[in-house]
């Protein structure tokens, strides 16, 4: 792809990403608006924090004395300047809470996404290579199993088996409390805590990507250029690696990018089960306290995260796949 074409592609893609985030802010605005009662009472009412000062502050934040389009504009402008309002529960700005929790979630979802993609493609490739054999059936059964298992339940089973019964790995949190480690020891400590949550979140998507890779590889393998490669006398291994897998992997990565939002959403469940100190756990705490300002902030920020992952995978696919240029 020429640099100019790439720049144009990037600009178009960034516009689309910005559009999605704007859409999310508008959806968030209207979800609160559609609930019975005015937003200040919706947000304050159920939280039992309906003191006059807080209500006044909410009314100002949402600009409730203004007409609806102005209110929407105020809300979008606030979010654009990272002003998500105040969390009444902890009396801090939502933005500061999100910033504090975001790194843990990025670490968890990033690890889970990378694991799911790598393991899913590998399993799918093995199944497609040995289609109809025992290995294929094993992969199919594994994929069916993890695809049907609720991830929060998998997390509990992992805690039960690996933390409670076997005692191999820590069950909760991100660090060993009071250990005060530094350097490599601290990294190893986080990695040990990360293993179970990342596996829990990743297994479901691994199953999905394995099925997609298998289907995609079988489809590519039936195309003419593969038959040509075979007719040339190329061996089966290189054909699969260089011709089939290379072509089959792109739609899988593209699909995984679109699905990133689901994976990020799943982190709420996993972080809740493992007490992982990220944005998802924050959402659960917000839910318990009926802290809607915070919940809205989580919705917007996790959507932005999903959009960012989607953007990165699209760029990777565009760079790897020469056909994108032709398609425009």
């Amino acid at each position: 792809m020429t640099p100019a074409a790439f720049a144009a592609f990037l600009a178009r893609r960034l516009m689309k990403a910005a559009g999605v985030v704007l859409g999310v802010v508008i959806v968030a605005f209207f979800v609160v608006r559609l609930a019975p009662g005015d937003p200040a009472s919706v947000i304050a009412g159920q939280s039992g924090a309906a003191d006059a000062q807080f209500m006044e502050q909410l009314r100002r934040q949402f600009g409730l004395d203004q007409p609806l389009p102005v209110q929407l504009w105020l809300y979008v402008k606030g979010v654009a300047t990272l002003d998500f309002g105040v969390s009444h529960r902890v009396q801090r700005t939502v933005a500061s809470l999100l910033v504090e929790r975001l790194p843990a979630t990025i670490l968890l979802t990033g690890t889970a996404f990378a694991f799911a993609l790598a393991a899913g493609v590998a399993l799918g490739a093995i199944a497609a290579r040995r289609v109809g054999t025992v290995a294929d059936s094993v992969v199919t059964v594994l994929a069916l199993t993890f695809y049907a298992t609720p991830i929060f339940w998998v997390g509990l089973i992992f805690i039960l088996v690996f933390a409670v019964w076997l005692g191999w790995l820590p069950a909760l949190g991100m660090f060993t409390v009071g250990a005060d480690l530094s350097g490599l020891a601290a990294v190893a400590d986080v990695a040990r805590h990360l293993l179970l949550p990342a596996l829990t979140l990743g297994l479901f998507y691994m199953a999905l990507y394995a099925r997609l890779t298998r289907a995609s590889m079988l489809e590519v393998a039936s195309q003419d250029f593969v038959r040509t490669a075979r007719a040339k006398g190329m061996r089966e291994g290189p054909i699969l690696r260089r011709h089939v897998l290379r072509n089959a992997i792109l739609p899988v990565v593209g699909f995984a990018g679109v699905q990133a939002g689901q994976l990020v959403g799943g982190s709420i469940l996993v972080e809740t089960v493992f007490s992982w100190p990220g944005v998802g756990r924050l959402a659960f705490e917000a839910l318990l306290a009926r802290d809607y300002n915070l919940l809205l902030g989580v919705f917007i920020v996790t959507s932005a995260m999903a959009v960012a992952i989607n953007l990165v995978t699209d760029i990777v696919v565009a760079l790897v796949d020469p056909r994108i240029e032709v398609e425009g």
């Binding site: 919706v42 689901q262 959402a283």
Partner: peptide, 18 residues
């Protein structure tokens, strides 16, 4: 596409909570 690319679980959560 918009609805497909956002974390739909969190949207569902938000709707049910509110």
């Amino acid at each position: 596409e918009f609805f497909q690319s956002i974390p739909s679980f969190i949207l569902a959560l938000l709707i049910v909570a509110i």
